[in-house]
Amino acid sequence: MFPIVEARVLGPNVKEFEIAAPRVARKHQAGQFIILRIYDRGERIPLTIKSADRERGTITIVVQAIGKTTSLLNELGKGDSILDVVGPLGKPSEIEKFGTVVVIGGGVGTAIALPTAAALRDAGNHVIAILGARNKGLVILENDIRAASHETFIMTDDGSYGEKGLVTDKLRELIASRGVDFVLAIGPIPMMRAVAECTRPQSIRTVVSLNSIMVDGTGMCGGCRVMIGNSSKFACVDGPEFDAHEVDFKVLMQRNEMYKESEQKAMADFRLNGGEEVKRVRGACANG
């Protein structure tokens, strides 16, 4: 059992959890993820680690409720427990002194980009952060990202906060006005693909973190395979970060559709009967 020691709401359907997982906390490096299973009939899902506190033996994750498992997770709070947490998995982000770097976070991708942004700053880079969201209410972790970067720009689709426009609008402007040496983009697949196209003409080194479907997370099943250049790679052990200009985003999107029907069914059931399920899971937590 992995107790939830803190939980707070960051935005609509977005929640942050601090979980006691001493082994993971001790070894975590920016860019790595965990796999968790909430209860005995649950599925295994990967979630990137936002931060780790070695002394407290805890890790922090940010969860957006999309499907059944994330919705169930977001019903839990301080004092509840998660049955299984394993990690840290995947390769850490490559941290070097590149010069001027732009870190782009779309939606909850901001949480994932945060530790890498801080590590890039600590490595002596000038870090510019761009946060993208549909509207003001969906901007999360603004203060954290401001603390981890030298400059921060916020872009909203409707202009309700920061500037109106896409993250790529700001990125293009920065490339033209000051030159950019390295870009990290984490967020929805269409956003990452757009960033890759934006930096391709000048061959600016660009890295994205891929969220393909996983089961074990240790390279054992190959379900998370993605096409990188002309070769098949496993996001769980070869990634999750890859050179954005080599990623076949079409295959990634197609493979993420694999269980759409099942996911919709599970979510519909959860909407109907989720209350009972949540009660049972919380009861199991209480019984240890």
Binding site: R44, G223, M227, M258, Y259, K265, A266, D269
Partner: peptide, 29 residues
């Protein structure tokens, strides 16, 4: 890379370890 192509490891892990044959009682599809 087509959807529907599995390694035996993944297919069997989903069924045996994750009990996907009992979806939706179990969550893994």
């Amino acid at each position: 890379s087509l959807n529907g192509v599995y390694s035996a490891n993944e297919f069997l892990t989903r069924i045996n370890l994750m009990r996907a044959y009992r979806f939706p009682e179990y969550d893994e599809p």
